[in-house]
Design a protein around this nucleic acid. Structure first.
Lengths: 344, 344
DNA sequence: GTGAAAGCGCTAACAC
DNA sequence: GTGTTAGCGCTTTCAC
């Protein structure tokens, strides 16, 4: 019912063989322009539509890639997927989307499905839960093109696309310094996650590079949440020499800090400066508008797909993209009211 | 390189035919339990993985569905996709994701790709730009299972899943009334879009049902944006008898209203109440926290997939799900500070 | 309960 | 420049 016209129909009507028709449709160089036009015209006329399953089965290329993200509900990943799908689509690729829900088991299931569907490559952001990477290692062994984005693992030697957390943190901290804040604190994230570790380093190095000293009590160990932002702010204000600015590891944490400051009547940005990380969509709408570091999500998706394409092509030509290829995107800072400087 | 083990390998090692192996792997009733176990064990041992392309080609079922959304970058759709993928995955289905970017051309391209990939069905939310629906009509003609979610078209007679905009608007308006606001205004959206039209009706009917009169100058025609919220608020405050509450067609509009009120020193919720629509993630974080109507996005995705499944199954059994099947989800209200009531 | 044979629709290798 | 032939890996009659 749904679709019956095949290249056989075209071949029959044109007194050609299916091979010729197939070649004509694929714009094969050794087919005459005349024949190509005839075939293409007839195909249009019969409303022919290539059966991708058959062609993929035979050719070994599915023109499909698998994408694993923790959850499409998370802003960040929705945005990256936007970039991936866009780029894939304009390159003639389809994407199969899977969510790991931060679990290793669904991650494995996704990979199973992808292999079964004979995808040409896989783009993945590692689930939080995952500590055993054998399913990914297996992909490398089978020589299946794989690229990590955002959530990577250094030891696995898988090509990846990330943003420069260190640099983002460095610039954010320096921005606070330049705007006249004297004692800059940091609400950190779990240190076993590389991105958060890098942000702490960037913060520290920015202080040192600007002849400030690192004050240990100005570094609060949070868990990337609104709550930990509040707690951190409370802690900071109770110090004998409280800081006058905070670089928060991420925007919800920053939001927590802002809420606490408001409750305690500390004026932002006059008495206290703050900058976050992620450039969430609420940043510009809260009061005061929150300065933040944008993670270039769409660009990340685009770059990840392009890198995967490179690997796929190299694979076809028996070449090889270096395993330690790593694209590091430059974060972009958005300066808003929350960090415009101290009043004096 | 990537994958060489086929049912032939299993058959050879076990001295069976591929037919038997295939049946055993598919849990065919007429295969002995013994054989099944042997085959399944051997499959595991050889790390066999079914070639989905081949099986789909032969059987005519791909266990894949196509999903068209305007953009994965939009919160709302990311969230719906979350619901779709989750449900699909646990039912053994994969999803191919396409973004229309609100254009008809990409919508058509998506459908082309889906047909080519022989998806078992399609889930779609119509692009804003689309006024010519022939590509969707074509799907109906070919009897390809199709379900619309959120953005539907009434005339097309395609099964759909939407939320009850009318009821959401009615309840939101009534909430403002119950909390003591006397003159309730509405910032409306473009009236050619059904959802927005329904919200206006819900607003009006709630007023009438509570013995209020509909005041025409309390209805501002906006365009669903922060800007139009600001403009509306300005307009309202300049009336000789300004309203004391607003039901905004959507949260960004509500945010615009709030911003304007703050600038003009109107106190929320004491002097002015406000409730929005969408339950955006910033709602609870702005000041005052914004009351809103949640659109049940994840549930919508789940219901849409389930409805599609029903149609697919009915199709197989030559039955038919009614074309005008329409699942209407109940919106859920979130009451926050912005509408807690007038001071007296 | 299992086997033999055919074929889904396409592309690729080899002819000429 | 086009035809011939084979086959990707699976499922599905139809046998027995």
């Amino acid at each position: 019912m749904s679709q019956r016209i095949t290249i056989h129909d075209i071949a029959r009507e044109l007194n050609l063989t299916t091979a010729t028709v197939s070649r004509a449709l694929n714009d094969h160089p050794r087919i005459s322009t005349e024949t190509k036009q005839l075939v293409q015209e007839k195909a249009r006329q019969l409303k022919y539509r290539r059966n991708k399953l058959a062609s993929s089965l035979r050719s070994g290329k599915s023109h499909t890639i698998g994408v694993i993200i923790p959850s499409a509900q998370m802003n960040f990943f929705g945005s990256v997927v936007h970039g991936i799908e866009n780029t894939a689509s304009s390159n003639g690729y389809s994407i199969i989307l899977y969510q790991s829900e931060e679990t290793t088991s669904l991650e494995k299931k996704a990979i199973e499905t992808f292999l079964s569907a004979r995808v040409d490559g896989i783009l993945a952001s590692i689930a939080k839960e995952t500590v055993d990477y054998t399913h990914y290692v297996e992909l490398r062994k089978r020589n299946i093109p794989l690229v990590f984005f955002d959530r990577t693992n250094e030891e696995l030697q898988v090509p990846s696309v990330v943003i420069d957390d260190y640099r983002g943190a460095f610039l954010a901290t320096e921005h606070l310094i330049k705007n006249g804040y004297a004692r800059i604190a940091h609400v950190a994230g779990p240190q076993h996650i590389k991105g958060f570790r890098d942000r702490l380093s960037g913060y520290k190095d920015a202080l040192l590079a600007n002849n400030r000293t690192i004050v240990n009590e100005y570094i609060y160990q949070g868990n990337v949440s609104l709550e930990s932002g509040k707690e951190a702010a409370d802690y900071f204000l109770n110090l004998t020499a409280p800081p006058d600015a905070v670089f928060a590891v991420e925007d919800f944490t920053a939001l927590g800090v802002i809420k606490c400051m408001k409750e305690r009547n500390v004026k932002i940005p006059e008495d206290f400066g703050i900058i976050g990380f992620a450039n969430e969509n609420f940043d510009e709408h809260i009061t005061p508008a929150l300065s933040s570091v944008d993670q270039q999500t769409v660009q990340m998706g685009k770059e990840a797909f392009n890198l995967l394409m490179e690997i796929i092509k190299a694979n076809d030509g028996k070449a090889r993209v270096k395993d330690d290829t790593k694209i590091v995107l430059d974060p972009v800072l958005f300066f808003r009211e929350s960090s415009t400087g101290k009043s004096n």
